[in-house]
């Protein structure tokens, strides 16, 4: 269901190589958490600054200084919504910067990310929030939080879960039990940002033996795709 989205992030044919004269740079660790495998090459000691080569399908698409990438990822991360006018190197880079990959995360970790998304929806106070809870009994433990979200805001909340428990009707919350079978393995949140699209964000995690693999993103186009996937199921 969401496998293609997860795989797309992991398997794009792109290679990153850092050229540096000293110790590993922080950006290498950072890129690793974004699902990027990075090779390193050594530079002569008097070469002043490290830089990164970005290849896509074995072609160099960009060479950029480590400092420049660090400046890019300084929060708030602002990336152009319109991608037509920018070079391939930036396109590849933004694609990566916008998705934070994870694997081997547990429920506790995912709950923390989910809180961030729910908080954001609460602060904006409108828009559509869709959540796949795997089962309604999982939703049970979060029900007071979602009651607050639904009653104190104008949020339109949709809950997807397998019906192993009957949740109480709450104004502002729509339950989708029928389609949920196929989402059983996924922990998903997608918030469209309501009146403030810059606040859109989403999380997709796939469970295997209690551990989750997936990504989260602030990108509105990806968030919309996730939202549509839930809707069309």
């Amino acid at each position: 269901m969401f496998d293609s989205l997860i795989a797309e992030v992991q398997n794009k044919d792109r290679q990153f190589t850092v050229y540096r004269s000293g110790e590993p740079t922080e950006i290498e660790q950072w890129l690793a958490t974004h699902g990027v495998t990075i090779r390193s090459r050594s530079l002569p000691p008097h070469w002043p600054k490290p830089f990164i080569e970005i290849k896509a399908n074995d072609e160099v698409v960009g060479v950029i200084g480590v400092e420049a990438i660090e400046a890019l990822i300084e929060p708030p991360l602002v990336t152009p919504g319109e991608r037509d006018g920018i070079s391939e190197g930036y396109r590849v880079l933004f694609d990566i910067l916008e998705k934070t990959m994870f694997s081997g995360m547990n429920r506790h970790d995912l709950l923390a990310i989910s809180r961030e998304i729910e908080d954001r929806a609460f602060r904006v106070g409108n828009g559509i929030l869709k959540v796949s809870f795997q089962t309604f009994s999982t939703f049970k433990s979060q029900i007071e939080l979602y009651r607050t979200l639904a009653t104190e805001t104008d949020l339109d909340i949709h809950i997807y879960a397998i019906e192993d428990w009957t949740p109480p009707p709450i104004s502002g919350i729509t339950y989708h039990a029928n389609a949920a079978e196929q989402f059983g393995a996924y922990w998903v949140l997608a918030y469209d940002g309501g009146t403030d699209e810059t606040q859109s964000c989403s999380l997709v995690g796939k469970e295997r033996s209690g551990e989750f693999t997936g990504f989260w993103t602030n990108n509105s186009a990806i968030t919309e795709e996730i939202s549509k996937t839930l809707e069309n199921a």
């Binding site: 050229y19 830089f51 080569e53 960009g62 060479v63 950029i64 200084g65 420049a68 070079s87 190197g89």
Partner: peptide, 12 residues
């Protein structure tokens, strides 16, 4: 790489 770290602009 030398160029990009001097100018700050990505080399295409």
């Amino acid at each position: 790489g030398w160029e990009t770290t001097t100018t700050g602009t990505m080399q295409t």
